[in-house]
Design a protein around this nucleic acid. Structure first.
Lengths: 148, 148
DNA sequence: TATGTGTTGCGACTGAGTTGCAACAAGTAT
DNA sequence: ATACTTGTTGCAACTCAGTCGCAACACATA
C-alpha cells in the first residue's frame, strides 16, 4: 500500500536526498521511526515500529538502512554497556556529542554534555595526530537514585 | 602512551584466590593467556591459545571465565569500534583507564592516557551524582599515518 | 512510460554467546 | 590419604544479531 505522502519530509530524508541517495518506501518508514523515537531503539524495535507504517519492511532492510545512515554519519551506534543483551542501539546525531551513562541496577540511561569531553577530543586529535570521525564514551555504574 | 608493564606473573590467579574463587586447570590456562597477551584478544583467540596449554578447554568455559573476570572487575571488555565483526576484545585492567583509538583505514589500535579523561570522569561523578564502575571511551577515525 | 540502476524481500547462512545437564575436580573436613 | 560437598567443566543443542546472494522490484531521470 502507498505511504502517506502528505507528511512534511523529515530532516533525515532531506539530508539523504541532498546527497543524491534514493528515497524508497521502506527507507522512509525506517527514517521516520528513528526521527520520532523518544528513546534509544535497537534494530528489532525499529523493525517492529517501521512495520506499523509499511508492513512489508524486512529485517535485512533495517540493517542495510542503519549501515547507510552510519556511513553517512547521520546516526550513532551505541552499546549502552550491554545492559540488555549483545545488540546495538541507535540515535540521531544532532548537535554535540554526549556521554551515555547506564545504571547497572535500574537500567536508566542518562545523557551528559560536557565541555571537558570536547576538550579531550581536541587534545586527542592534536597530541596523537588522529582525525576523529566517531567517538563513543559509555559509562556503567549506579545512578543518583540507586547509589544507596 | 605505553602502559606500566611492572607485572608479576600469576597475579590474576592470586587475585582470584584471595577472593576465595576456585582455581581450576582450564581457568589457569585462560588466565595465563590473558596475562601474557600482548594485544587485545577476542574470545575465540583466547580459546585457541588456551588450548595450546590445555587441549580440552571448551568455548563455553572461556565465556564463563570472561564473565567471572568482568564481574570481578579484573578485565575490561572492548568493542574497538567493531573494526572486525561484532565480537568483543578483552584486556587486563591495570592502572589508569585509557582511551582506545581505532584507525578505520589500517586497523591500528592506539591507547592514550589523559589527565583530562580522569577529570571528565570526576566531573561526571560529581555533577550527575553517578558512581562509575566501568567506563569505555572508544574513538574511530584516521591515525597519523593514514590521514591526508 | 520506458529505462537503467540501486533497493528490496526472501531465505538460508554465519558467528557470538548462552544454557541445561551429567560428569567431574578443588578445597576442606574426616 | 579418603570421602564429601559444592562449584566447575565439556558437551551439544540452542538463541539471537547480523549478513549475503539473488531474482523481482521501484525510484529517479529522460
Amino acid at each position: 500500500m502507498p505511504l502517506p505522502q502528505t507528511e512534511i519530509p523529515g530532516r533525515l530524508q532531506m539530508q539523504l536526498a541532498e546527497r543524491g541517495i534514493r528515497l524508497t518506501g521502506p527507507r522512509r518508514a525506517i527514517l521516520s521511526v528513528i526521527e520520532i523515537a523518544a528513546k534509544h531503539l535497537d534494530a528489532s524495535q525499529i523493525l517492529r515500529k517501521a512495520r506499523t507504517v509499511d508492513a512489508s519492511v524486512d529485517r535485512s532492510t533495517v540493517y542495510r538502512t542503519l549501515d547507510l545512515l552510519k556511513r553517512q554519519g547521520l546516526i550513532d551506534e551505541l552499546d549502552l554497556m550491554h545492559l540488555n543483551g549483545e545488540g546495538h542501539y541507535y540515535e540521531r546525531k544532532l548537535g554535540r556529542d554526549h556521554i551515555h551513562m547506564a545504571c547497572l541496577r535500574c537500567g536508566k540511561i542518562t545523557e551528559f554534555v560536557s565541555k571537558t569531553f570536547d576538550s579531550l577530543k581536541q587534545q586527542l586529535e592534536r597530541d596523537c595526530r588522529f582525525h576523529i570521525l566517531v567517538s563513543r564514551l559509555e559509562v556503567g555504574g549506579y545512578c543518583s537514585a540507586c547509589r544507596r
